[in-house]
Amino acid sequence: MEGLNMSIWTLGVLIFVALAFDFMNGFHDGANSISTIVATGALTPKQAVLFAAFFNFAALWIFQLKVAATIGKGTIDPQFVDYYVIFGALMGALAWNIITWYYGIPSSSSHALVGGLVGATVAKAQSGAPIIWEGFGKILAFIIISPLVGFLIGGFLMVLVAWIFKNRSPYQAAGFFKYAQLFAAGAYSLGHGGNDAQKTIGIIWLLMITAGIATKDVATLPMWVVYSCYFAIAWGTYLGGWRIVKTMGTKITKLNSISGSCASMGGAIALGLATGAGIPVSTTHTITGSIIGVGAANDVKAVRWAITANLLVAWVLTIPASGLIAAIAWWIGTKFL
């Protein structure tokens, strides 16, 4: 049974690749939360990445594994999944992440992962049958809903802050927001870690179901999987630098400590709600929506809608592009692995 002998080794490699994906996710997106605290000088870049990394990991103790469950057993039928599918899915998502990271496009790691998973599964099944539309449909719907919710909460928070501080100059209010933005960025990092680390947990869970190590019961999932996923995303965030920070913090609209706090807090609330409900959403989309909402409250013309439109194109492309790469990677995997 050559296949079985290979499987332990393959399982290890795939878990490693999944953790690498998780690491990349932190590397890619983790900086979103700290763009404003660095831009406003509340923390140095080094302090800020450490801060974000810590809260990404701390999400472990806050959220239940509902998002992991949606990815692990709610998007595609686990019985169609084999190692090649997971390999294809991870390759598709990783490749797409690196492409968008290189070009500085804040696309979604989550949709890249879901796109990869669905793309590789459909390539294997040669049909759309394995797709669980209840879960996948929810993910698709939240591509639209999560930035909208971010937009509404971000904009609403900005309006609320403007009324609370109505009779103070922004300069006076900034004193308060120097601390508030740390709170907001911490909350956002929690939301990011909670939602995104769980997607990888979901993938590894799926892998373990396939290998017969775990079942659909969450209690059978080894705790080291959970810890290592949260650690990978935190570590990625720490090393991620701030290439994307520039796009998010300055290109869409100018953020200061006040609008930055509102944007982070708006993103954090929206993410917290989604994570609590077990919906894998894009953290990038959510914070982008929130930043736009805040920009729209301050001044509609302050939002550079052309760049926002650029982001939209990347969003629409993410699932098909990562799905396609995943299908190709699956095919290559079946030939050479």
């Binding site: 904009g155 609403f156 900005m158 309006v159 403007a162 009324w163 109505k166 909402g293 729209a296 409250a297 301050n298 001044d299 509609v300």
Partner: peptide, 8 residues
């Protein structure tokens, strides 16, 4: 849409 809700 939010700008009209801000203090004028």
């Amino acid at each position: 849409m939010f700008s009209s809700l801000m203090p004028q």
